[in-house]
């Protein structure tokens, strides 16, 4: 089979199964500017020791944003640790319109948590929905610390969602949400802290796997990539 310019030769049709589109960043680059298409926002972020080091600030938070359009359903995961356990929390937004500092980014959907023992929020351009929506600190839930916890989530096409947090001591807790209508749809991925406190707050091993809704599908490079070349090596299925 061949792809090309509105071509003329009749060829077999591609299968219609869905395709994966993956973006990952382990932040294993030299200390300093984040690179890889990311830009800092809010109180700032930089690479330090192979991790993304973000700074919190009242009304600002801090983190990074990059161009990345994703399709749902998608799965995501990252590691999170903090120097301020009582106030260390994370924030991630998909198809964000902007970072919209201060406050949560306007996005198709975003999630955040102010500390490990507190509720997790799904934000669809307000109102936010808490899960498990229990009094805080939630029994059995733990604050984050210097050892990384693993946050893993899955968002369906109807935006019903599940997030599983695995704390550094292997204790697991889960938050979930029902289907809902999307927020305003942009084209940015936002990752940062949700903290009014300096921290610093650390991220590592980000992985976003979304479903390419099309066949054919370009799976690499990601939208917004910056090849150091006049060429771009692409692949897909």
């Amino acid at each position: 089979m061949r792809f090309i310019l509105a071509a003329l030769i009749v060829i077999p049709v591609l299968s219609s199964d869905v395709r994966a589109q993956t973006f990952s960043d382990n932040f294993n680059r030299p200390d300093g500017s984040v690179g890889n298409g990311w830009s800092p926002y809010g109180a700032g972020a930089a690479l330090a020791g192979g991790e993304l080091r973000t700074i919190g600030s009242p009304g600002l938070g801090g983190g990074v944003v990059r161009s990345l359009s994703v399709a749902f359903p998608l799965s995501f995961s990252f590691d999170f640790s903090t120097a301020d356990p009582a106030n260390g929390g994370w924030f991630i937004a998909f198809n964000a319109v902007s970072t919209l500092v201060p406050g949560p980014a306007m996005a198709q959907v975003s999630f955040f948590q102010f500390a490990g023992s507190r509720n997790v929020y799904r934000n669809i351009n307000d109102p936010t929905e808490a899960s498990p929506n229990l009094p805080e600190p939630i029994p059995g839930w733990e604050n984050y610390g210097s050892a990384p916890a693993h946050i893993r989530g899955h968002v369906n096409a109807d935006l019903s969602s599940v997030i599983t947090i695995t704390y550094a001591d292997s204790v697991q807790v889960t938050a979930s949400w029902a289907a809902t209508a999307p927020g305003p749809i942009g084209a940015a991925l936002v990752l940062g802290n949700s903290s009014a406190y300096f921290g610093p707050h650390f991220f590592d091993n980000l992985l976003v796997t979304s479903t390419c809704q099309t066949t054919p599908c370009i799976t690499s490079p990601p939208d917004g990539a910056s090849p150091q070349s006049s060429f771009c090596g692409t692949f897909g299925n």
Binding site: A6, I218, G224, P227
Partner: peptide
């Protein structure tokens, strides 16, 4: 990319080459 038989178009990516 475009499938030559169906004319179906892929997702689009915008890149920023050197």
């Amino acid at each position: 990319v475009q499938d030559r038989s169906t004319t179906a178009l892929s997702n689009q990516i915008t890149v920023h080459p050197q």
